[in-house]
Simulated assay, not measured.
Amino acid sequence: MTAGGRFFEDFRIGETIRHATPRTLTAGDASLYSALYGSRFAPQSAETFAQAIGYPASPIDDLLAFHIVFGKTVPDISLNAVANLGYADCRFLKPVYPGDTLSSVSEVIGRKENSNRQTGVVYVRSRGFNQRGETAIEYVRWVMVRKRSPEAPAPEAHLPELPEAVSVADLGSACPNIDRAAFDLELSGSPFRFEDYEAGAKIDHADGMTVEEAEHMIATRLYQNTAKVHFNQLSEGQGRFGRRLIYGGHVISLARALSFNGLANAFHIAAINGGRHVAPLFAGDTVFAWSEVIATAALPRRDDVGALRLRTVATKNRPCSDLPLRQGEGYEPSVVLDLDYWALIPRRP
């Protein structure tokens, strides 16, 4: 029998959902990911660089691993979604290498019907496990899901309590101790280390990247993301926007790739504190990005890397030379993504 996905009234607080189809990641997946976004961070790009600084092999890009774990959850969580709304308390706990196999499990931790009675918001905590049963990635997301029947009675609202940010003490477990003296700044593409950044600094990443229809379709298939809003023009052509939405994770990866210009040595995403997809993105739009350093932090018991708390904002069809963010009480109309995360960067020898 075929599966039509869950609707809002099908979710139960405390329910655990084990998602289908484990996924073994390969060097081919890493190469395709690089081709889609043009990411240039040195440890993920060069085996020689990664091994020189202390990795056993070049790691899978953090966001590629995140998207794979996320994609596993889609058929059970967001197949009937209107939109993925946000993320919180996302931690990268184990490095992922080619040959590792990831699988996903989610727990329903919150739900609330919307006032239109057509949809509701569901909160889940999802975990991605490697083949040894170790948690590699853990995160919370909330998604707006269609109701099967608008007349169905509304369940009691339950909203989870989420931390404002991931604790500094919880950062770094997915990054081995690195040889900071071996972190070649010429090869990495930037002379700047942890000590060169300070809270309040704003960085215009300058470059723009136009989203192509083929690229975002390849990306969603790479992640085995089956959400109708991304790949089914027949169904979405009759919807609110009249066309397919770009997967929100595609925007995150684009912004991360663009951030290389100014943050080239921030080589590892250690945690995502929170994120919002502010507005839809479509094929043909051009994405720009800028970042603000919210805070800098030394890691407990580590002197090889420090952590930058970054707020990266992505816009569509508007360069970020004037660093747009808000207009009055809301976001400036060009903003599509507001992402708050911790990234690790080498310290001076």
Rank of each mutant, 00 (worst) to 15 (best):
A182T: 06
F231Y: 14
K72G: 03
E47F: 04
L64N: 07
D207R: 08
L185R: 13
H268C: 03
F92V: 00
G14R: 10
L258H: 03
I68S: 14
I137P: 07
T24D: 04
R276P: 01
L310R: 13
L102C: 14
E161P: 01
G71R: 09
E47N: 07
L281E: 04
E161W: 01
F66W: 11
A50V: 01
V335D: 12
R244V: 14
G38Y: 03
A343L: 04
A270M: 07
E9N: 06
N273E: 08
T16R: 09
A157D: 06
D196S: 15
Q233M: 00
V69G: 15
W142V: 05
R18L: 12
L337V: 14
E113V: 10
P98E: 12
V108D: 04
G262Y: 01
G172A: 06
A42Y: 08
A264Q: 02
L79P: 05
G133I: 04
T296I: 03
S167R: 12
V122Q: 15
W342S: 11
S103D: 02
E329P: 05
R91P: 06
Q131P: 01
A219F: 15
Q131D: 15
L63V: 07
A298S: 11
R18Q: 14
V168Y: 12
E113S: 13
V124T: 15
S126P: 06
E198N: 09
